[in-house]
Amino acid sequence: MTIDELHDYGLMTMNDGEINGFLSSQRTGVLGLPAEDGPYLLPLSYGYDGDERLYFTYLVGSRSRKAELSEATDIARFLVYKVDTMYNWESVLLTGQLTPVPEAEWEALEERLSDVWRPAVLESAALSGELSIYEFRIEEQTGIKHQGLPPSLEPDRE
């Protein structure tokens, strides 16, 4: 079924304002990068500028597949989703360009990245590891949501 056909079951397309609000309220998603052996999927936390850019902090070692693939790709995708119940969820898919941010510009991003959620193990490792920051410039965005029962399951209100 297409998204349009699913509207009959209560699925709604999100407008730009709803997408912006959703991205602002979330902190994690899944980055998809093209790789020779299939898509490379990576759960990441992010900072959002409230408009058209996300920022990712990578913990890298002497060799990092995510950094290598990020720098080699022209187009990446990032999926942010939230599921409360089977009848209440939201999903935003972003397509855009991913580029490393020069270290000289990191201080300007400090506020955007200050409230980014990170697992405790990565916070600890970051104290002794090498970091990189990447900017994801949003070129396309689509969002869908379902909030409430599908019309066929709604109680009659006669």
Rank of each mutant, 00 (worst) to 15 (best):
L113M: 07
V92E: 01
W89R: 01
V116W: 03
E18L: 07
T73S: 11
R137K: 15
I19K: 11
K82D: 14
E68S: 13
N15M: 06
E90F: 08
E107W: 00
F136E: 00
Y46W: 03
Y48C: 06
L127W: 04
K66F: 06
L94C: 06
D49A: 07
S91P: 04
T95R: 10
L42Y: 02
W106C: 05
L153H: 09
P150H: 10
K66N: 09
P100E: 12
L122W: 09
G38W: 02
G143Y: 07
D49M: 03
E36H: 07
E105C: 07
D156V: 13
Y9N: 05
F22D: 01
E158F: 11
E68Q: 14
G21I: 07
L94M: 06
R77A: 14
V101R: 06
E110G: 07
K82R: 14
P119N: 03
D84C: 09
E105I: 06
E111W: 06
G29V: 01
Y55V: 02
E71P: 07
K82N: 09
L113A: 05
H146S: 06
E110P: 00
S128D: 13
Q147V: 12
T85W: 00
R112F: 15
R65I: 11
Y87H: 13
M12N: 11
E103P: 10
T13N: 01
P43N: 03
R53P: 01
Q26N: 05
L44C: 08
S114V: 06
D156I: 12
E130M: 10
L94G: 05
G96H: 05
P150R: 10
T95E: 12
G38Y: 09
Y9V: 03
M12Q: 14
Q147L: 14
D115Y: 11
N20W: 09
H146I: 08
T13W: 04
A126W: 00
A125V: 04
D16R: 15
L69T: 08
N88R: 15
A126R: 10
D84H: 11
L54W: 01
Y134N: 02
E130S: 13
D37P: 03
V101E: 04
V121S: 12
L79W: 01
L44R: 04
E107A: 15
T57G: 02
L23D: 00
S114W: 05
V60D: 07
R112D: 12
E111G: 11
G96F: 02
I19M: 15
E68H: 11
K66E: 08
A120E: 15
S128A: 13
E5V: 08
E103N: 09
F56K: 01
L31T: 01
K82I: 03
A125K: 12
G10A: 07
A76I: 05
P151I: 08
M86Q: 13
T73V: 15
Y81P: 00
R63T: 15
P34A: 13
P102K: 09
L93S: 11
A108S: 15
I133T: 05
E110H: 11
E71L: 11
R157W: 12
S24V: 02
V101T: 05
P43M: 04
I19W: 03
S152N: 14
K82S: 12
I3D: 01
L109R: 03
A108K: 12
R137H: 12
A108V: 08
S70F: 00
P34M: 11
E154L: 13
N15C: 04
L44M: 15
W106V: 01
A125G: 06
E123W: 04
T13C: 00
E71K: 13
Y46N: 02
Y9H: 11
I138V: 14
F56G: 00
